[in-house]
Structure formats: structure tokens, C-alpha cells
């Protein structure tokens, strides 16, 4: 049962990785890479590593996504000014 759960999570993570790499819209690509980190934190719980899961949930899906979005916003602003 747990194995099935992990397989489903893994398939979603691989699809999200492919989407993050091949999606033309950068915003969607950034959100997809955040989804990978969020699901990875669920897997860390299943691997009995709650410390790592907390870090990954807060950093991988929260702060990393925000830093990417700030960058995208900044680049769009420079583009608009040009």
C-alpha cells in the first residue's frame, strides 16, 4: 500500500520535473519545480526523517519558489523598461 503511494508520488514528481524542464511559460515551470520539493517532503516523512521533511517543506516549496518569482518579476520589469 505504501509502495503504491510512493509510486504515485514518484510519477507525479517525474511529470512535474518534465513540465518544469519543457514548459515554455516560466511561471508554470517555477511552480512545477516547487511541486517537486513539496512532494519530496512527503517522501521524507515516509523515510522516517521528519527533520529533513520540515526543512524541505519550508525551503524547497516556500522560499525557493519566492526567490525564483522575485527574479522573474525583476526580469520582466527590466524587459518592460527597455
Amino acid at each position: 500500500m505504501i509502495t503504491l503511494f510512493i509510486v504515485v508520488l514518484g510519477i507525479i514528481m517525474i511529470m512535474a520535473a518534465l513540465m518544469a524542464i519543457y514548459q515554455k511559460n516560466l511561471l508554470s515551470a517555477i511552480v512545477a519545480s516547487g511541486v517537486i520539493s513539496l512532494l519530496a517532503s512527503v517522501i521524507y516523512i515516509l523515510l522516517a526523517a521528519p527533520d529533513v521533511a520540515m526543512t524541505e517543506a519550508a525551503i524547497g516549496s516556500g522560499l525557493t519558489t519566492i526567490v525564483f518569482l522575485y527574479t522573474l518579476n525583476k526580469i520582466n520589469k527590466i524587459k518592460a523598461k527597455k
Binding site: D51, M54, A58
Partner: peptide, 10 residues
Amino acid sequence: PGGGFQGGVV
């Protein structure tokens, strides 16, 4: 579970 790194991030 948790500690300095997690708390700082929160």
C-alpha cells in the same frame, strides 16, 4: 523534530 535551520526558515 526541528531545530535552528527549520526555525530560522519559518
